[in-house]
């Protein structure tokens, strides 16, 4: 069984069909890219999987379990991590508080969270991740004082904090400088080797071709192609979708 599977997922905004009858599978240990022109329904797909809003139709399975309609936070606590296309941080909190917030609900019970301090392992891990992302010197800064690139890295770091089994990344390298982009890709590969599964929405084709073993192409909310990078590169429908069909 795949780690994540959607069956006939559909999302309508009023009369606009953003995602249409999408069947999608991710196996354990894969790195999958979701690509497609702007407005092709990639982010909407993520949002339906994590129930940011309900899908109009279709079902979502995670670890063989039907998670359709579960609240977002519950899905996240089952071991799904995600970033948003627009960075979502707690801007008026420090970098370090942001990191700890991203993991606190994964431990203990609601009541225990009133009485226990932060897990020392989590604190250590937060330091390590910030160190790796070259932003550990900013740990006591408010997140709002970070540059766009630094915020992007913090966002990425927060998702990794609870070691999610499935990581959904929405454009992880956009707005991140070259060198850091390479580092992020290496890190994703490293974590992938340790058993984490990644689904990545990405516009940068270098990243997609280098990082991913399998690519899914969306256009107008429909899956128009699926396959290995070299197959996708030569697929006529994909080329048409990206460059427009010449009459």
């Amino acid at each position: 069984m795949p780690l994540l599977e959607t069956q006939k997922m559909t999302k309508d905004f009023y009369k606009l069909r953003a995602v249409s009858q999408l069947d999608f599978q991710v196996e354990r240990g894969e790195i999958v890219a979701v690509i497609g022109p702007n407005g092709s329904g990639k982010s909407t797909f993520f949002n339906c999987v994590t129930h940011i809003y309900p899908a109009t139709a279709g079902r979502v399975y995670y670890q063989e379990r039907d998670i359709t309609g579960l609240p977002t936070d519950k899905i996240i606590r089952l071991g799904v991590g995600r970033t948003f296309q627009l960075i979502q941080l707690f801007l008026e909190m420090t970098v370090f508080e942001n990191m700890l917030l991203s993991v606190q609900e994964h431990r203990g019970t609601l009541l225990s969270r009133l009485f226990t301090k932060d897990d020392s392992g989590d604190v250590e891990r937060a330091h390590e991740i910030l160190e790796f992302l070259y932003i550990s010197h900013l740990k006591d800064e408010l997140a709002s004082n970070l540059s766009y690139g630094q915020q992007k890295l913090l966002d990425f770091g927060m998702v990794l904090m609870p070691r999610p089994e499935l990581v959904l990344l929405d454009e992880p390298t956009s707005g991140v400088e070259m060198e850091m982009r390479g580092r992020i890709m290496d890190y994703i590969r490293e974590l992938n080797k340790q058993g984490q599964t990644f689904v990545v929405i990405e516009h940068n084709m270098d990243v997609v071709m280098n990082l991913c073993e399998r690519i899914i192409v969306l256009d107008y909310g429909e899956k128009i192609a699926e396959g290995r990078p070299e197959e996708i590169q030569t697929n006529q429908r994909v080329i048409d979708a990206y460059f427009g069909v010449e009459e």
């Binding site: 977002t72 801007l91 991203s102």
Partner: peptide, 11 residues
């Protein structure tokens, strides 16, 4: 501060 981010981190 940010309900969407909170939900996105399991809160």
């Amino acid at each position: 501060l940010n309900e969407l981010a909170a939900r996105g981190h399991g809160i």
